[in-house]
Amino acid sequence: MLTDILITTLINASVYAMLATGFSLIFGVARIINLAHTAFYMLAGYFIFSFTTVLGLGLLPAMLLSIALVVVIAVLSYRILIDPMREHEAAVLIITVALAMVFQELMLVFYGGHFRSVPQLVSGYVTVLGVRVSSQYVVTIGALVAILAAVWLVLMKTRLGLAIRATAQDREIANVMGMDVSLISTVTMAIASAQAAAAGALVAPLFILEPRMWLYPLTIVLAIVVLGGIGSLKGSIIASAIIALSETLVTFLLPSGAFLKGAFSLGVMIVVLLIRPEGLFGVSFEGER
């Protein structure tokens, strides 16, 4: 059981970390709370289902194509619907929820409310530290961690990453340093949505697909971002691990725990916030933008 707890925690923590860091990035740079963020995760799963079952593509090309398609949809949504409304925070919340609902209902129209699944990328088992683990789980965890590390490297070691971090700190000053903050925001939206889509694509072979699958992760991502401290990527990653571990422990150790995992995780968040209202690694966003 210990192995199950460990594997489930690792999978969920890395999926949440992918979703939460993307959510934090786009919040930091474009100053928007994108409630449609996890809908991109859902879309990627359905696109893979279509590409593999309808078009008969292999799983890997279907994954890559799905991520690319989701990024195009996300960038267009951002430029056409969200960016013009950026200064109206309430309007952005409504627009992004509406967007997620539209995606959900379109999936209902095209695929119905049935549970769907996609084939596994790899089959068989491998032995890790003396324990037999499904190869698909190992590949998924490895790929998620590798993508997170790549995003981290881009942010910390490249010129684009510096521009993203500077824009997240102060849009106005980034602008007078010659940075095209509108373009940087769009690129950040592309990175964040690619992260959400990659998370969706990588867990699609493990989870079931259904049109409301964006809602629970969205609640958890909001909890993680608040728990980790709004705007802190490090905080998002650590909070993802805390929430994923508490979810898994409740699911495995309590009778009917799977029904309580959300309530328990959100309870953990509330307790931490009572002690540290700014979150674990709270970053002040009160300064001039």
Binding site: R165, A166, G178
Partner: peptide, 16 residues
């Protein structure tokens, strides 16, 4: 850029 290092601030100036 208060949360960036001094070196990163200077490099942000050299963005172009």
């Amino acid at each position: 850029f208060t949360e960036l290092t001094v070196a990163d601030n200077l490099m942000a100036g050299a963005y172009l």
